[in-house]
Amino acid sequence: MLQAEFDQFALEYQQQHAASIRLSGETPDFFAQYKIDDVAARLAHSGVKPRRILDFGAGVGNSLGPLRAAFPDSEITLLDPSSQSLDIARKRFPGQADFRHFDGETIPYDDASFDLAFAACVFHHIPENLHVALIKEIERVLTGGGSFFLFEHNPWNPLTTNAVRNCAFDENAVLINSRDVRKRMAAAGFSKSDVVYRIFFPRVLARLRPLERFLTRMPMGAQYFVHAVKPAV
């Protein structure tokens, strides 16, 4: 289902994404960049330098440029069920990552293959009954002490729900609140996780964005991420 859905929109993804977020005043590049900046800052604070990175549900590769800039020495894998999306990503960034097709169930890598896994607004496209199994797959391919960052749209933010409602490739999306994400991550084996809310001000109020560091626990940001660390063996 996911392959057919995203193959259908792959060629128009960038334009449709940009149109859906126009009320924010920002571009898809802005949203891709801030996510990787957040991941890099949190890992740097812990002194972690991931050697192998998995971008789960990477689509057309919007996160690859920021990932490559933040982690220039890392091996990066883009995983997606849409072959057409991966073809676009491969043409955009030739030779900069391993572009791997995914059957939607089993990640085609051995246990403990990655130090960092990252999912950028992917799970609201996946049926809820599959979430725990897929998160468990991500947990399986992480090394002990490896991090998983799951970014999602916040269903409690009206600008976010408007953007999703007006985006063709989000037609079948079901937004997930952070509490349910944490429950599913715990069921998949991540015993502890942390929620951070992001993007409180549109571009017209960008001068207020330095205040966001004081608001990250307030569940009204346009997006949020849940960060979990796989227990070390």
Rank of each mutant, 00 (worst) to 15 (best):
P158S: 07
F118Q: 10
H101W: 13
I36Y: 09
E12W: 05
Q3T: 12
A19D: 08
A120N: 15
Q33I: 00
S193Q: 04
R209H: 13
V60P: 15
N162Y: 12
A44F: 02
D80V: 06
E212N: 07
C121F: 04
R165F: 08
R217F: 03
S82Y: 02
G189N: 02
R217P: 11
D80S: 11
K136V: 01
R198N: 13
R217I: 00
D38H: 09
A70R: 01
E139Q: 10
Y13I: 08
H153D: 12
Q84F: 06
S147D: 13
N177S: 07
L2M: 10
E12C: 09
A70M: 05
F93D: 05
L79N: 08
L211P: 03
D29Y: 14
G189Y: 05
A186K: 10
T216G: 03
P108F: 03
V39S: 12
Y197H: 14
G57C: 08
A40P: 00
S113E: 04
I107A: 00
K136A: 07
F225P: 00
G104D: 01
K35C: 12
G144V: 03
F151K: 14
D111K: 01
P210K: 04
L67N: 11
M220N: 10
G59P: 14
R179F: 10
A119E: 05
D103N: 13
A44K: 10
T160G: 15
G146Y: 02
G104C: 12
Q84I: 14
Y224R: 06
L142Y: 02
S191A: 06
L2Y: 03
F169A: 01
A120L: 05
D55P: 09
F123E: 06
L150A: 13
G47R: 08
D103Y: 04
V181L: 14
A187P: 09
R179L: 13
N129W: 10
V233A: 06
A19V: 01
K136T: 12
